[in-house]
Amino acid sequence: MRNADRNESDVIFILLGFSDYPDVQIPLFLVFLVIYIITVIGNLGMIVIIRFNPKLHTPMYFFLSHLSFLDFCYSSIITPKLLQILVVEDRTISFAPCFIQYSLAAICVDTETFLLAVMAYDRFVAICSPLRYVVVMSQKRCALLLTAVYTWGMISSGIFLYSLLILSFSGTNIINNFLCEYSAILSASISDKHVTETILFILANFDTFFTLIIVLTSYAFIFVTVLKMHSASGRYKAFSTCASHLTAVTIFFGTLLFLYCLPSSKSSWLLVRVNTVFYTVVIPMLNPLIYSFRNKDVKETIRKLTEVPTWWCSG
């Protein structure tokens, strides 16, 4: 039975979350609440810091501010519902909110995937063509790249959403996760999944490997260029400018590949949920910490923003 033949208000999803571990519900709630608070403060703080410090008005930090924006949005789409199902018995979510949550989260993920590739390209130009950096990464070029990233993120997520909407669901559907995630929704469907699985395979592989090719190619040229430098301090400075982005990329794509390459067996569902927590809750918290830990300009701005004014002390 297609969803068009069934009133969508009759279709509900039950998010199992971590209900099979009742003893850890409250501790998990407290942990995720702290993580979410740090995520909100960290990412919004990063945006404020970049806006506040004129030294950070460069293409790299322009893209970083949008990475923080996406992480904030992504976490705010997922974590509040996770916190809710940890403390209330009602774990149901109706058809429309479930698909809205998925579509918004998919936009953030798809956009962030390509944004990380654009940031790798930015580092490639900065290190391999430093004299042409200002021209190549002009304000207009950055705006065009960012527009393309957001546009493809919405198109890609729209295709994924359509591939799920053509499926049929029973009145009550069990989702063995804490969010309306693609593979979990797909598993809950009662209809033939061949077309949807084909779309997933083609588009997910295109998104992942196309961006990975950009990232790996950029860093291959960066590595070769750095090795040709005669100055040890120059090599260190070049590598240090890439360290934060390379760390973020490794964590993001490593978790993404693990999540979608893991076989969907019953024994793997706990690993899927744990990995999904890391992917949806922890990574958005880590990114601002990663970029601020090794960056002197960011740390200096934080110090200036948090230091107590002398007039306050004298008063």
Rank of each mutant, 00 (worst) to 15 (best):
L82F: 12
P80R: 10
S76A: 13
T79D: 12
L86F: 07
I77T: 11
Y74F: 12
Q101K: 04
P80L: 10
S94I: 05
P97G: 10
T92H: 05
Y74L: 09
I78Q: 07
A96G: 05
S103P: 00
F72E: 03
C73T: 11
R91A: 02
I100V: 07
A96T: 15
F95E: 09
K81L: 14
L82N: 04
A96M: 12
P97N: 12
D90G: 11
E89R: 13
L104G: 00
I78E: 11
Q84D: 05
I93W: 05
L104H: 00
C73V: 14
P97Q: 12
F99P: 03
T92Y: 06
S75D: 01
I93Q: 13
C73H: 07
T92R: 08
F99Y: 15
A96N: 14
S103N: 04
F95P: 12
F99M: 13
I78P: 06
L86G: 04
R91N: 06
I77Y: 03
I78H: 02
R91Y: 05
V87F: 09
S76K: 06
K81S: 13
Y74N: 05
F72C: 06
I93F: 02
T92C: 01
K81I: 13
Y102G: 04
I77W: 04
Q84T: 08
S103F: 02
V87A: 09
I78V: 15
A96I: 15
L86S: 05
Q84M: 07
A105K: 01
D90C: 10
T79Q: 15
Q84H: 08
F95T: 12
Y102Q: 07
C98A: 14
S76T: 14
R91H: 15
L104K: 00
E89L: 12
V88P: 02
F95H: 14
T92I: 05
C98G: 09
Q84K: 09
Q101R: 05
S94A: 14
F95G: 14
L86V: 07
C73F: 12
L83W: 12
K81R: 14
I100T: 03
S76N: 10
S103Q: 06
L82D: 02
I93H: 06
L83M: 15
Y74S: 08
S103Y: 02
T79F: 11
I85C: 06
F72Y: 10
S76H: 07
I93Y: 02
I85F: 03
F72S: 07
S75C: 01
Q101Y: 03
F95R: 08
I77N: 10
I100K: 00
F72G: 04
I77M: 06
